[in-house]
Simulated scan of single mutants.
Amino acid sequence: MDMRRSILALAAGAAVLAGAALAQTAPRQPAPPPPAGDPLGAGTVTRAEAQSRAAALFERFDANRDGKLDPADRAARMTALFDRVDANRDGAISREEFAAMRDRAGRPGRAAPTAALSRDAFLAEALKRFDAADSNHDGKLTREERRAGFAGRRGMMRGGPRGTGAMPPAPPPAGAGA
């Protein structure tokens, strides 16, 4: 019975690692709370607000506070995830615990990168995504720009528009005549 439990724990652990691997730009934990006064509903997000949110997110991910996201940070988060799933604290994940974790997650995971990512690179990538979504280049993202940016990124993950792998072209800046 002990061997069966060990195999089940190993299989569940592998499934947790495969299904809940943490990508550096798409965490499983909720994003930091939005800035006061802008719940991201129909409001706009400034570039400074986006940078602040990205910095707070990086700080949450950097478990060992060494200024970079690397396998050690992912390992610490995976240990914390295992501990959350192992509800009865017996060092193994039962079928029931695994099913409960899958029900809570509700979405497939992504493979974790193996290289370290510095804080500056993390923030630069966040601002790059902000700038790509800021179609009128006014330093603010409206609800429509956020939705279009999300749709473009989703299209890239699915092979791009009509499978081309390319993002749709950005609309011209505001005020640019046709």
Rank of each mutant, 00 (worst) to 15 (best):
T79K: 13
A80S: 15
L81F: 12
F82L: 13
D83R: 15
R84E: 15
V85Q: 02
D86L: 08
N88H: 05
R89Y: 00
D90I: 04
D90V: 06
D90A: 07
D90S: 07
D90R: 06
A92G: 10
A92C: 09
A92K: 09
I93T: 01
S94L: 02
S94I: 01
R95N: 02
E96D: 12
E97P: 01
A100I: 00
A105G: 01
G106P: 00
P108F: 05
G109M: 07
G109P: 02
A111S: 13
A112C: 11
T114H: 01
A115I: 00
A116N: 09
S118H: 08
D120Y: 08
D120E: 15
D120C: 03
A121G: 09
F122Y: 15
E125S: 03
E125G: 00
E125T: 04
A126H: 10
A126F: 06
L127G: 02
A133D: 11
A133G: 04
D134Q: 07
N136C: 00
H137A: 14
D138F: 08
K140Q: 12
T142M: 04
R143N: 11
E144M: 04
E144P: 00
E144G: 06
E145F: 00
E145M: 01
R146L: 11
R147L: 13
R147A: 11
A148S: 14
G149W: 05
F150T: 15
R153E: 15
G155C: 08
M157G: 10
M157N: 12
R158D: 06
R158Q: 12
R162Q: 12
R162K: 14
R162G: 05
R162I: 02
G163R: 10
G163M: 08
T164V: 08
T164N: 11
G165Y: 07
G165M: 05
G165E: 05
A166H: 12
A166G: 05
P168K: 11
P168F: 02
P169L: 09
P169Y: 07
A170N: 09
P171D: 15
P172Q: 09
P173H: 07
A174M: 08
A176V: 15
